[in-house]
């Protein structure tokens, strides 16, 4: 990591210029760095220059009619603390509380989670479930892409060379919940995680299952309705668990993961339906 230049532009134009002038592998954006630093240390990326996004005025939390717009570099801790967010998108708070520990959440960002597209990201399944989109900015201007199209696979996104994530847009209000499972409740990787939401307008349920290859899997249903029965929930959850692509690894076997998917899908839907949506650091015990 020796010899890497660190720059911290304070305007959007300045930031974008760094990316237009250098080949893509030589210049890498960094926000909280909580994921990227591991790659830097291991030598998996070897940029000449790191462009810090932390001085950009990209940390807003804005309420528009039916939408919440969150600047891509706003630390997760500063989203988690906002009571209005908790009310409008409760699942987002639950997902954020699942990320690392308190110290890490003061650095980690939504933009970083999306750009790095880590297979075990805790916020991506929730963003998929609520139907969020990302606004991108590049030399050719702005464009908006649904998260469902933005995250293509593990570590693979729709970002074009020189493009940065400007903000994340979530439809609100959106009844939602996030449930996860891991060996250690805090500072661990979710082996399986489920974001779920209900759109009262279309009466559609969306669940996104994280921890599955090649990226979180989205499942939708319009038969369950606003107040689904336990039996209907179980049937849906089991069906989802049977069709999601799962793999075993050192963290959990495939069979156990499948079982956990069924349990968490059911719990997520129940949590949304019952509006029992108060976040907790111990989501798996909820």
């Amino acid at each position: 990591m020796a010899g890497v230049e660190w720059v911290a532009p304070s305007t959007e134009d300045e930031a974008l210029r760094y990316f237009s002038s250098d080949p893509p592998s030589a210049v890498v954006p960094i926000a909280g760095g909580t994921d990227l630093l591991l790659d830097l240390e291991a030598g998996r990326v070897g940029p000449r220059r790191l462009v810090s996004l932390s001085r950009l005025p990209w940390r807003e939390l804005e309420w528009a009619p039916n939408a919440l717009r969150i600047g891509s570099t706003r630390p997760l801790a500063d989203i988690q603390a906002d009571p209005r967010v908790r009310q409008a998108v409760p699942g987002l708070i639950e997902a954020i509380l699942a990320v690392g520990g308190p110290a890490l959440r003061h650095r980690a960002t939504l933009g970083g989670n999306l750009a790095r597209a880590a297979p075990a990201s805790d916020v991506i399944p929730l963003l998929l479930a609520v139907g969020a989109s990302v606004e991108l900015v590049g030399a050719d201007g702005h464009r908006t892409v649904p998260v469902d199209q933005f995250v293509r696979a593990s570590r693979e996104t729709a970002l074009r060379p020189g493009e940065l994530i400007r903000r994340i847009v979530l439809p609100v209000p959106r009844p939602s919940a996030y449930r996860w499972h891991r060996v250690r409740p805090v500072n661990d990787i979710s082996h399986v995680a489920v974001g779920g939401s209900f759109d009262p307008g279309t009466s559609e349920w969306t669940v996104a299952i994280g921890g599955v290859p090649p990226r979180p899997q989205v499942e939708r249903d319009r038969t369950l309705g606003a107040r689904p029965s336990d039996a209907a929930i179980e049937t849906f959850a089991r069906a989802v668990a049977e069709r999601v692509p799962l793999r075993g690894d050192l963290r959990a076997s495939e069979g156990y993961r499948r079982r956990v998917v069924a349990i968490l899908v059911a719990r997520t839907i129940r949590a949304v339906a019952m509006a029992d949506q108060i976040g907790s650091d111990r989501g798996s015990a909820a």
């Binding site: 520990g101 409740p185 805090v186 990787i189 050192l250 963290r251």
Partner: peptide
């Protein structure tokens, strides 16, 4: 050794 680090060798943390 598959887990030579603190990500997958899980110590208790203060919150646990």
């Amino acid at each position: 050794l598959e887990n030579p680090g603190l990500l997958d060798y899980r110590l208790m943390t203060i919150t646990d």
